[in-house]
């Protein structure tokens, strides 16, 4: 079936570009691969008939957050020569932490079963705007509102940090 083949191709591309994020030699290229990964993830959402989620994923992640990432990386202008030296302890800690994460991920996914082969696309209106809106404002209204409060607190925190720096310079 063509849809199943498409699923495998898209999955492979997603995986490959995600791998290239880690393997790319230059940080700017890593970010570009990450953007590509977001596009492939959106493709997976579209296969699941979740067009709204797919487009929002592109607008928010690929279009806004990644632009800021790229912005910062371009300003830093990192390269092999002026890469900050990391201590061996830090490298060791990073290896241990990512190893533990890998164990958790494997433990979480080892007992999963494939309930049905391929994607189920027919009359799945959950990812469309109406279905998602209904769910967000009825069943999941509390987590939805709490996450918005979380965003607000993050914004207030950012404003506070920026303000404090200004006050210090004024005193000097």
């Amino acid at each position: 079936m063509s849809l199943a083949i498409l699923t495998y191709i898209l999955g492979g591309l997603t995986f490959g570009s995600a791998l290239m994020v880690v393997l790319a030699p230059h940080p700017v290229r890593s970010v570009l691969y990450l953007i590509l990964t977001f596009f492939f993830i959106s493709g997976n959402y579209i296969l699941l008939n979740a067009q709204f989620v797919a487009v929002v994923n592109i607008i928010v992640y690929a279009g806004a957050i990644m632009v800021l990432f790229l912005f910062v990386l371009m300003l830093l202008n990192l390269s092999k020569e002026n890469e900050p030296k990391t201590k061996n302890v830090a490298k060791f800690a990073a290896v241990v932490a990512s190893g533990i994460l890998a164990v958790v991920l494997i433990a979480a996914t080892k007992d999963t079963m494939i309930l049905q082969s391929g994607y189920q696309t027919s009359d799945n209106a959950q990812g469309l705007v109406e279905g998602l809106g209904q769910l967000l404002f009825t069943k999941y209204v509390l987590p939805f509102e709490i996450s918005s409060v979380l965003f607000l607190s993050a914004m207030v925190g950012a404003v506070l940090l920026a303000k404090r720096e200004k006050q210090i310079t004024n005193e000097l």
Partner: peptide, 15 residues
């Protein structure tokens, strides 16, 4: 059914 969001999305990657 998300036409206007599609335009916003393409616009945001245009940069």
């Amino acid at each position: 059914n998300i036409g206007i969001l599609f335009i916003m999305g393409v616009l945001s990657i245009g940069v």
